[in-house]
Every structure is written in structure tokens, then in C-alpha cells.
Amino acid sequence: MKKIEAIIKPFKLDDVKESLNEIGIQGMTITEVKGYGRQKGHKEIYRGAEYVVDFVPKIKIEIIVDTERVEEVVNTICKASNTGKIGDGKIFVLPVDDVIRVRTGERGSDAL
């Protein structure tokens, strides 16, 4: 099992969610995050005063899937969140040792 963590532009959330639904991804966790990578923040100027956006608002999506589905999910997220411009985001794939469904105690893929 793998955990897929994707950082995307906020306005792409609906698109990503829908396309993941279409390939049958049942659940995900999202978080409003701020940060920067190559797309550094920027400044806006209002009446001579600078307003710095040093951390850019983004959405983080977390999904746990079986290893064989990773490529499909990653491709789907990539396709749905791509605008071709800077700051489109990143996707991380991490190993997951185990998953437990709290209610039933099921483990592993059954708990997904």
C-alpha cells in the first residue's frame, strides 16, 4: 500500500476530486496548507505599502491506495491539476505499513 500526497492549486480541487471519483477512489483527506517551492511568493503593492505573500496557499490531498493503483492515481491527479504554469504542485508517494479500520479492526487492503 502507498500513500499519495499531492500538493495542488486550490481551484483545482474540484477537478481532481471528480476525476478521482471517476476512477473509483472512494476517500481522501484534504488540508489547506501554505508553502513554497520553486514558485516563491510574491509582492503586491497597495498605496506604496508592500503586501508579501511569502507562503502560497495550496491544497494537500492524501490518499492511501494499493500499490498497483499508484500509477493510475498519480496520472489522474497530474492530468486534472495541470495548468502548465508555475506552481502546479508536486506529488509524493510514500510506503504505508498498515491500515486499520477503527470500527471493525480490519487491516491492510480490507481497511481501505
Partner: peptide, 18 residues
């Protein structure tokens, strides 16, 4: 309302203002 929303909204405002 959080710093996250605030940052997005302010950025939009300043850009529309421009």
C-alpha cells in the same frame, strides 16, 4: 476564515484593484 483564506482573498483583491 483563516490565514489561508485571507491570503487568497487579499491577493485576488489587490490584483483586481490593479
Amino acid at each position: 476564515w483563516s490565514g489561508w483564506t485571507e491570503a487568497l482573498l487579499r491577493d485576488l483583491f489587490l490584483k483586481v484593484m490593479g
